[in-house]
Simulated assay, not measured.
Amino acid sequence: MPARPMTRGSNVALTREIPGLKGVVLGVVLASPERVLNDNLVVATLLCDASSQVLSREHVVFFNQLTSPDTAVAQLERARASGDLEQVEVDLRGVPDDVVRIVVVAYINDGLGHRRSLGQLRDARVRVLDLADDTELVTSENLAPALSAETGLVLAELYRHGGDWKFKVVGQGYADGILGILRDHGLAP
Rank of each mutant, 00 (worst) to 15 (best):
V104Y: 02
V28H: 01
G23F: 03
D184H: 12
L143Q: 04
D134N: 14
A31N: 13
Q172D: 14
R115Y: 11
Q172P: 00
R57N: 11
G23C: 03
S32T: 07
V61I: 11
S117I: 01
M1K: 02
I18Q: 14
G163P: 08
L37G: 04
K22M: 09
V28T: 15
D70L: 03
S148A: 14
G180N: 07
L26Q: 10
G113N: 14
L55R: 12
D130T: 07
A132R: 08
L118H: 02
Q87C: 09
P33S: 09
A74S: 15
R16H: 14
Y174D: 01
E77I: 02
I102R: 12
E34Q: 12
D84I: 00
A72Q: 03
L30I: 08
A149D: 15
N38M: 07
T15F: 03
A3T: 13
P96G: 06
L55W: 05
R16K: 15
S10C: 08
T139R: 15
F167H: 10
L147D: 02
E86Y: 13
D134W: 07
G27A: 06
V25K: 13
D123N: 06
V128G: 02
V54C: 07
N142W: 01
I18K: 14
Y174S: 05
V12D: 07
R116N: 09
I181C: 02
V24E: 02
G186D: 05
V42P: 00
I108N: 07
D39M: 10
V12E: 13
P69E: 10
Q75F: 03
L182V: 00
D84M: 08
A156Y: 00
Q172N: 13
P69Q: 10
G180M: 08
A50H: 12
D91P: 03
V29Q: 14
S51H: 14
L147I: 01
Y174H: 11
S51K: 15
T15M: 07
G113T: 13
R127Y: 02
V170C: 02
L153A: 05
M6I: 14
F62M: 04
Q53L: 12
G162A: 13
G171D: 05
V169C: 02
V90A: 10
L153W: 04
L26F: 01
V105N: 11
D130R: 14
T7Y: 09
R160G: 06
V36S: 11
Y107I: 06
L137M: 05
G23I: 02
V170S: 01
V29K: 14
N109F: 14
D130P: 05
L92H: 11
P189S: 11
D98Q: 13
N38L: 07
E136V: 15
G186Q: 04
D70P: 08
A31G: 00
T45P: 03
L66V: 08
D84H: 08
E77L: 08
A149Y: 11
G162W: 06
S82A: 09
G9F: 00
P2F: 03
S140E: 05
R16Q: 15
V138S: 01
Q53I: 10
F167M: 10
D70R: 05
G177M: 11
D176W: 03
V154Y: 01
Q172H: 13
G113K: 12
R101C: 09
A106C: 14
Y159M: 09
L37N: 04
V105P: 07
K22W: 00
